[in-house]
Structures are given as structure tokens and as C-alpha cells.
């Protein structure tokens, strides 16, 4: 089966830039468009609406939202309305959320597994036209119902990293967005998702397993690394010691990066990023190197490869490069 390609955009840029990139990505053969959801950036649903208006084929969704920031009924309402703009091209991507971001607005992340599961249940019931009286551990509704009909089933992707969330994602998701780039991490994630799929009696082909990677491509490998380093610095800073040790990364080096980022010394943080860190937390290099790494992930069992931030030093040029040199290698 041909590997699907997705692309992630962060709405720190205005809607028209993201819509332009979405048009370009669609023309370059990408199947999926994922837009991140952080309150500090532009609103994910408004951004997706702009992308919907100016594209015709690409499937798009939140990459990912969380159950905390807005009530799941409003998430369902937003996705259902987007589905009217682009029928059958919309999916929901949902995960536990980013602790730092949520804490900044005073939102507590209690019971993440239950919250994600319940939000998905409410979403599915509402988008199926049901009147929802729901008594969950985290969410309760007392007769929520949409005053409009949704004509098609909307797929749900679960963003997951930890073993329990991965297992649940395989069990209840139509897709799993695995937040990792290294083959060993992806292999482990697929193993955990498969456990959940088995529990639900699903076949491997029932669930779209997407590697949601940090990606950087350039004909000049040094430029690819230079673009990836800032993103990798943040990933390293946010990784617990066992994850770092698993990849042979010196924990004290990670502490250095974390300390530099904390005081806003980005130059020092980026300068401390090592080749081992780049290799562990990104897919980075020339088109040929990237093809080799993506092929390895496909062999492990992914069905979608998501090109995540930074994409490359120049986003437009990188999308063109992916469309002309990488995607064609995986179309058959």
C-alpha cells in the first residue's frame, strides 16, 4: 500500500500564509494537513477553515487539540462545521495536550486517558446525530445535541506518546499520531498501539498509524541540520532522562540546553544540540537521506508519514523538494 504523506503547520503565521502552503502541499501530493492547537498562536479552526476554502482534495485536521482547553462539545461543533466547508475531508486529531501550555492558562490535566477517551466518545455521539446524556469521570452532558446533521463519519486520530495512551489510541482511534521520529521509538509505539487494536479486534489496516516527526530537508545536509537544531533543542529540553538515555544522549547536556532555553539564551541552547540528538529526534538531511529514513519507518509499519516542524530552512522550497523528490518514491 502507498504511504500517505501528511504535513504539519503551526499557525504562528497568518491564515493566508498557511493557506498558501496548504495549496502548495496539496499540489505536491500531500494527503493530510495537520494544524497545531496552542492558544498563543492563531486559532486552529479558523486557520483550518481558510485551508478548506482554498484546497479541494487534501484531508485536514487538528494536529492535535486537547480535551481541556474547550469543552469537547465545542470541539465537535467546530469540526462538524468544518466538515460542511469540506465534506469528508476533515478529521479530529486529539491528545492529552501540552502541560506547559495548559498550565499557563490555569488548566489542570487530571486523568488524561479518561479525558481523551471521553472527549472522543462525546465527539462520536454528537457527530452521529445522537442526543448525548453522558456521565463520565471527567465530562458530563445532559442532553447535548446538534441542530444540524453531519452527512459522513468523521475519523478520529489520537495523538500519543506514552504506552497507555498509545494502547488506547490503537483501541479507540481511527488513526494514531505517534509523536516520534526515531525508528526504535516508532517501533515501540506501533507495538503498544497493536496491543490496543488486538483488544478491540481490529486489523492492522483498520488504523492509520502516522509518524508525526520533526523533519528538515535540504540538498545541503548542513542546512538541514541547522534548521532542525532549534526544534530538536526544545524536544531534548522536554524529554525525561530515560528517553534521553535510551538514545545515548548525555543527560547533563540536555540539562545545559534546558537551562539555556529557560533564560532565553537560544544561541547557547541550539549550539549544544549534538548529532546524536538530531538523529534521535528528527528526520533530517538530503532528500536521499530522508527517503532512506522514511522507508525504514514504512518497513516498521507506519501508514502515514507526517512532515512536522521545521520542514526545512525555507518552507516553500522544502515542500517543493518533498513533492518532487521524496513523495514520488513512495507512491507505488
Amino acid at each position: 500500500m502507498a504511504l500517505k504523506f501528511g504535513i504539519e503547520f503551526v499557525p504562528k503565521d497568518p491564515y493566508w500564509k498557511l493557506a498558501a502552503y496548504a495549496i502548495q502541499a496539496e499540489k505536491c501530493g500531500f494527503n493530510n494537513l495537520w494544524v497545531t492547537d496552542h492558544f498563543g498562536n492563531r486559532n486552529v479552526y479558523v486557520t483550518l477553515a481558510a485551508a478548506a476554502m482554498y484546497t479541494t482534495k487534501i484531508t485536514f485536521g487538528t494536529g492535535v487539540t486537547n480535551p481541556w482547553m474547550v469543552n469537547p462539545v465545542i470541539t465537535a461543533q467546530a469540526i462538524a462545521t468544518l466538515n460542511e466547508l469540506a465534506p469528508g475531508r476533515v478529521v479530529l486529531g486529539i491528545g492529552a495536550g501540552d502541560k506547559t501550555t495548559l498550565e499557563a492558562v490555569g488548566v489542570e490535566m487530571g486523568k488524561p486517558l479518561a479525558a481523551v477517551r471521553e472527549a472522543i466518545e462525546i465527539f462520536r455521539k454528537l457527530t452521529s446525530g445522537e442526543t448525548v446524556a453522558y456521565q463520565g469521570e471527567v465530562f458530563k452532558t445532559a442532553g447535548a445535541k446538534f441542530n444540524f446533521k453531519i452527512k459522513n463519519k468523521i475519523l478520529v486520530y489520537v495523538g500519543a506518546q506514552g504506552p497507555k495512551m498509545l494502547e488506547m489510541a490503537g483501541k479507540i482511534g481511527d488513526g494514531v499520531l505517534v509523536n516520534a521520529s526515531h525508528p526504535s521509538d516508532i517501533e515501540y509505539a506501533i507495538k503498544m498501539a497493536n496491543e490496543g487494536m488486538k483488544q478491540a479486534g481490529k486489523a492492522a489496516s483498520d488504523v492509520d498509524i502516522a509518524a508525526y516527526t520533526s523533519f528538515s530537508v535540504n540538498e545541503d545536509p548542513k542546512k538541514a541540520v541547522k534548521a532542525a537544531a532549534p526544534v530538536v533543542a526544545f524536544i531534548v529540553a522536554g524529554s525525561p532522562p530515560p528517553v534521553l538515555e535510551k538514545h545515548g544522549i548525555n543527560v547533563s547536556k540536555a540539562d545545559e540546553i534546558r537551562a539555556a532555553l529557560k533564560v532565553g539564551d537560544f544561541g547557547k541552547a541550539i549550539g549544544a544540540v549534538s548529532p546524536e540528538m538530531i538523529n534521535a529526534f528528527s528526520i533530517c538531511g538530503t532528500p536521499d537521506t530522508c527517503i532512506e529514513k522514511i522507508a525504514a519507518l514504512k518497513k516498521i509499519g507506519i501508514s502515514q508519514f507526517v512532515v512536522g516542524s521545521p520542514i526545512g530552512q525555507n518552507v516553500k522550497a522544502s515542500i517543493d523538494l518533498i513533492g518532487s523528490k521524496i513523495i514520488p518514491q513512495f507512491k507505488n
Binding site: 497568518p14 493566508w16 498558501a20 495549496i23 476554502m53 482554498y54 484546497t55 479541494t56
Partner: peptide, 12 residues
Amino acid sequence: TSLANAMLLKMK
């Protein structure tokens, strides 16, 4: 905004 929207339409 009007120029951005017109440009996006041409791109589409």
C-alpha cells in the same frame, strides 16, 4: 486581506 484572498484564489 483583500489582496491575500485574491492571491490565494489564483493559487488555488
